[in-house]
Amino acid sequence: MSKKEDKFNKRRLRSSYFTVIVSISLVLFMMGLIGLILLQAQKLSTHVKENIGFTVILKDQVKEVEVAHLQKSLDASSYVHATEYIDRDRAAKELQEDLGEDFVDFLGYNPLLASIDVNLKADYANPDSLKWIEADLMQNPKVKEVFYQRNLVALVNENIQRISLVLLGFSILLLVIAIALINNSIRLAIYSRRFLIRSMQLVGATSSFIRRPFIWRGILNGVYGSIIAIGFLSAVIYFAQNEFPALFDIQDQQLFITLFGIVLLLGILITWFSTFFVVSRYLRLKTDKLYQE
């Protein structure tokens, strides 16, 4: 009976570890997917915000050199993502294309002024920042007017904030679910060994001595689970890069590595703390309570 039973016990132990690792990897994979969605949402939000901008309308008598100087100083400022100078002729041409008629010929002169289109950095693409940027620019004697669509800026910001909040709430909820599920798997695995923990206590082992191998095993399971989750995530990213190349570019590699690092770290931390608390709980329980568990 002995060898068979021994093999059976070892297989049972391995199968219990396997179950824990599979649970951890699936939950971490879900967390990683949400991380991936958050990263893409962040990119999308930055992209949208960096398309928000304003137009600096220049006064009539401003010289080319002064325009170049102003554009340079705008490019150098902390809030600007990109600028584009549009001289009077180009402005007229663009408007003619939009209107479909030659208004310069009709009027006999070009009433449009030269301008600089400014795209803001994502962090500054909000009504408050735009207000002080406008005030700052209006102090420049070469600037006639600063034009932007206040309502659109406010609306874009409001919607991005709303979507971010929903995603953040969803992420937190998923993190709580992840912790609960992993904790539950670990608790079940350790539950079956609660009397072993008691025996260890009875022969004079300290709590930390008893906890140590459980925690190591837990962390190892966390690492294995994370590696499997990272494998699945890599497959998803590979598939997405092939199917939707516009969504994922090569610069994302660094972000993906960070995401994988976070998944690994979460795997280690959640299993570490869960194992610590579960084993500590059984260490504190009186023998009678162990039977009532």
Partner: peptide, 9 residues
């Protein structure tokens, strides 16, 4: 509690 293992030794 932390002294119990020392007693049992």
């Amino acid at each position: 509690t932390r002294k119990i293992p020392l007693l049992r030794r």
